[in-house]
Simulated assay, not measured.
Amino acid sequence: MSEDTMPDVSLIRDADLRKELERHKRRNLLPKLLALEIQILIEEQTKRDASDAERQTELQAMPRDRRRRAEVHDHFLNEEPQAEDLRHLHSVLAICGLPYDRLPLDVREYSREQGNMAIDVAAGSLRGPDGSKVLQPLPFGPKARLILMHLCSEAIRQQSPTIEIADTFTAFVREMGFSDSGGKKGPLTAFREQLNALASCSIKISSWTGNKVRSRQFFPIEEMDVWLSAHHDQPSLWPSTVTFSHTMFESLQKHALPVNARAVRAFQGSARKLDLYFWLGWRIHNINEPLHISWDAITEQFGSGFTRQRDFKAKFKEEVGHLKEVLPNLPLKLTEQGLVLSPADPAVLALPPVRKPLKKT
């Protein structure tokens, strides 16, 4: 059999099938046998293509958020967690998070407790282009959390408290699944608002025992360089640099919690789901036996905005189900009494198997 009559090997595209093709070529098979092996690989590629097309049709019919979760789940089925998807967040922010929803501008403080720890956030102010003082809201919602993850990740990657973000921030916004459009209601404008709120706020972290209280207060962002537009009716451009305070950077280096950017993207529209994913990463790392947590404790941790626990329970169960759509091996079980969390390998959180040990907060 001549090369002219040999099946078209360009139809074989998947890496594993291409590898199998090369193996067959090295076997020095008779042309007819090689053609048969190539045809089998082409048929397998055709089946995969048909299955992929069918899956794409299913995905397109799904609501946006469900489709996003399904796409990330499919990715994790086909690929092991990769180091390039690794991001970081300060572990304290995985224990005691920010507000879920926008608070009125005249609300200048926010507190959150979890066990024997608390976070107190105080809103601040910035100067406008004309030098006037502009009150900033308390940082809130998923975008504030995503920004903190991005800044913490860049500080770890760049090994510096001063983070060059002029060229990385827009790419980060796109990576998280948002468009990079500006305008009054554009995603970039919303991200800019949260970055300004974070740049102006102060944070106090407290922990206590029966006879001792320890508190540490700091501005997470010590300095921010922003280029202002020359046109009065145009907003500021992205900052070129953001500098963490010494306290924040020093603490981050000791307590950097690894997370997977793809998993984060799956939950990018929900502050509570992000908090749950971050919290599970911290908890799973710090337990050696099953941990039982009551509904009262879960409500204290994640129930902000609910007046009735039964309403929160229903929503929480739904959101845990969404996490398991993406991460089906989460060692988490809900019972009538609360939540049971078991020790597990980092892979259940879509993390690479090797990571630096975290110090307990």
Rank of each mutant, 00 (worst) to 15 (best):
M248R: 09
T162F: 05
A297H: 13
E164H: 15
R48S: 01
C152N: 00
L291I: 07
F312Q: 05
L330A: 02
Q268E: 00
Y277W: 08
L349K: 01
P137K: 11
E80V: 11
D74G: 11
L11N: 10
V354Y: 14
E336R: 14
D106S: 13
M6V: 03
F249A: 05
T57N: 07
A256Y: 09
P346L: 01
S132R: 13
I40S: 14
L228D: 02
S215M: 00
F172D: 03
S229V: 10
F169S: 01
R157L: 15
F278M: 02
G186L: 02
Y110V: 09
T247G: 11
R26Q: 08
A197T: 06
G177R: 02
L228A: 04
R67Y: 01
L195S: 10
Q217E: 14
E58M: 11
P357C: 04
E289W: 01
F191W: 02
E3F: 13
E154W: 02
N288L: 11
V354C: 07
I221H: 09
N28E: 11
L77E: 00
D120M: 08
M1L: 08
P235E: 03
W282R: 06
R157Q: 14
M1I: 10
I163D: 03
A314R: 15
E154Q: 03
L228C: 05
V226N: 01
L93N: 13
F140K: 00
A83N: 14
V107W: 03
I293Y: 10
L33T: 12
C96T: 04
V354M: 12
K143D: 02
L327P: 08
E164V: 10
T189H: 09
A35Q: 01
K356M: 14
Q337S: 12
G141L: 05
D233Q: 13
L349M: 01
A314E: 06
S251D: 15
K185P: 08
D120I: 13
Q60F: 12
S51P: 11
R192I: 05
K32R: 12
F178Y: 12
L358P: 09
A261K: 00
K360N: 13
L274V: 04
R64W: 07
D16N: 13
A230P: 04
H285W: 10
E80K: 12
H246T: 14
G281D: 03
F219R: 15
R48D: 00
K356D: 14
S2V: 12
S236Y: 04
A50H: 15
T247K: 07
A297W: 07
R214L: 15
P142A: 04
I205K: 08
M62P: 01
F172G: 07
R26W: 09
L252T: 00
P129E: 00
H292I: 14
K254S: 13
R55Q: 12
W279E: 06
V354E: 14
T170P: 09
R265Y: 03
T307L: 05
P99Y: 05
Q45L: 00
D85T: 04
F244Q: 09
G210E: 05
A256E: 10
L146K: 08
K317D: 14
I221C: 04
S342P: 02
